Simulated scan of single mutants.
Amino acid sequence: MRGLKATRSTEPSRPPRCTDRLRFEPNTPFTERTFDMLDGIGWVIAGGESGPRYRPVQEQWLVDIRDACSKARVPFFFRQWGGRSPKAGGRELAGATWDEMPPRPAVTA
């Protein structure tokens, strides 16, 4: 796999109606720290797992991927800490919310 790895993700994904110019890597739940490069990735979404059998996420893993995204100029979106409910841990990482998004392509008629 290129780029980042999370337990449920095996390949960089393309959301519906996404142009070939944007490849994003959803990392929720982010349950292991393994990433090596961000080549070809246009957006990283990371966060913890929620639900009654959630697995905790390590803060340092998230900080490391946020820093790697910053260095590579890849937008980083931190979704949630996770817990028994999606809102249990909040959305702040290192004292801030991370809602970066890739630029939207121009709409042509």
Rank of each mutant, 00 (worst) to 15 (best):
L38Q: 06
I41V: 13
Q80A: 01
I45G: 03
T97L: 04
T19W: 06
P86V: 09
G51E: 03
K5V: 14
A46T: 04
A68C: 04
Q80T: 01
V63K: 13
D39L: 02
A94M: 13
S70T: 11
T7C: 10
R84C: 00
P105W: 07
E25C: 12
L38T: 03
E25I: 08
G82H: 11
D20E: 04
S70M: 11
G51H: 01
D64Q: 04
A88W: 00
E59P: 01
A46F: 07
N27H: 04
S50L: 07
C69S: 06
G89D: 06
K87N: 14
M1R: 13
P102I: 09
T10N: 11
G90D: 12
K5H: 13
F76W: 10
N27K: 15
L4Q: 06
L93K: 05
G51C: 03
P15E: 09
Y54M: 07
R104W: 10
G95H: 09
P86L: 11
F76T: 03
V107Y: 06
S85V: 12
R79L: 12
D99T: 12
F35N: 03
F77D: 03
A94F: 00
F30E: 08
G89M: 14
W98L: 01
T10S: 11
P105L: 14
R21S: 12
F76C: 05
T34I: 09
D20V: 09
R23C: 11
A68V: 14
A109D: 10
F76Q: 03
A72P: 02
T97A: 03
R55V: 12
D64P: 02
G42E: 07
K5P: 00
K5R: 15
T31S: 06
E11Q: 04
R73A: 15
K71D: 10
Q60M: 04
P103C: 08
K87P: 05
F78G: 00
I65W: 03
N27Y: 00
D36P: 01
P86G: 08
G83T: 09
S85T: 15
S50E: 06
R53I: 06
Q60L: 03
G89E: 11
D99E: 02
P16W: 10
E25H: 09
